[in-house]
């Protein structure tokens, strides 16, 4: 006779435990942890390269990639502590991997931890890493339809960044449609436009990071 076993538990329960461990650790240490999610080539690493030297805060970076340590090497040039995670084919980071990587992060001596997720707009949005919030990064060349095509990420992200706005004159991209769709999916999101190579928009983002840090530290 078959027997029915009731479970009613999240499938990801084990990983969610790692995520809550990380979340309470960040809370206790007063660290702002940002989970950066965007397509390959949207400019996540370039943003960090330009942002880190200008940010007057103590930062660390966890780099998630399918293979190679190229991104970590680029970050290391800025002098910021960085740990590379290779997912060996995995299309997203999971909390258990981040928890392991945290062993090599000087958590007591930092204010902000950036986690650059594997380049992908779908899967990373579905896995809680224990972050303070998710940041969606979308670049102009990808097209203005990304928010509606990947609603889960844009719905969850606390901040949405549109990068490479310097190429707007050369590409068919309806900027107001992009932001209107973001607004519909996520009315509370903080919105930024950047052209990182030229340094455009970095100051606004730096101001916001300082505010978010004040928020989580309650001052």
């Amino acid at each position: 006779m078959p027997r029915l076993v009731n479970v009613k538990k999240s499938v990801m329960a084990a990983d969610e435990e790692h995520a809550s461990f990380i979340r309470s650790m960040m809370k206790q240490k007063g660290v702002l942890m940002i989970n950066m999610i965007g397509s390959p080539g949207s400019g996540k690493t370039t943003l960090l390269e330009k942002l880190l030297p200008k940010l007057n805060l103590r930062c660390a970076v966890i780099e998630g990639d399918v293979a190679t340590s190229r991104d970590a090497e680029r970050i290391a040039v800025t002098g910021t502590p960085v740990v590379q995670i290779n997912t060996q084919g995995g299309c997203h980071l999971e909390a258990n991997l981040v928890r392991k990587a945290l062993r090599d992060i000087p958590i007591d001596d930092i204010d902000v931890l950036f986690v650059e997720n594997v380049g992908n707009l779908v899967c990373p949005a579905e896995f809680d890493l224990g972050e303070t919030f998710k940041m969606a990064i979308s670049s102009v060349p990808e097209g203005d339809d990304k928010p509606l095509k990947y609603p889960s990420l844009f719905h969850q992200a606390r901040a949405v960044l549109l990068t490479k706005v310097d190429v707007l004159p050369y590409i068919k991209f309806d900027r107001s449609a992009f932001w209107r769709d973001v607004q519909k999916l996520n009315p509370g999101a903080d919105k930024f436009e950047l052209a990182v190579i030229e340094g455009k928009g970095l100051d606004d983002l730096i101001g916001a990071i300082e505010d978010w840090l004040k928020d989580i530290r309650g001052n």
Binding site: P2, L4, V5, V11
Partner: peptide, 10 residues
Amino acid sequence: LELTNLEVEM
């Protein structure tokens, strides 16, 4: 994303 129940043979 929930595991609701299982049916098992003893």
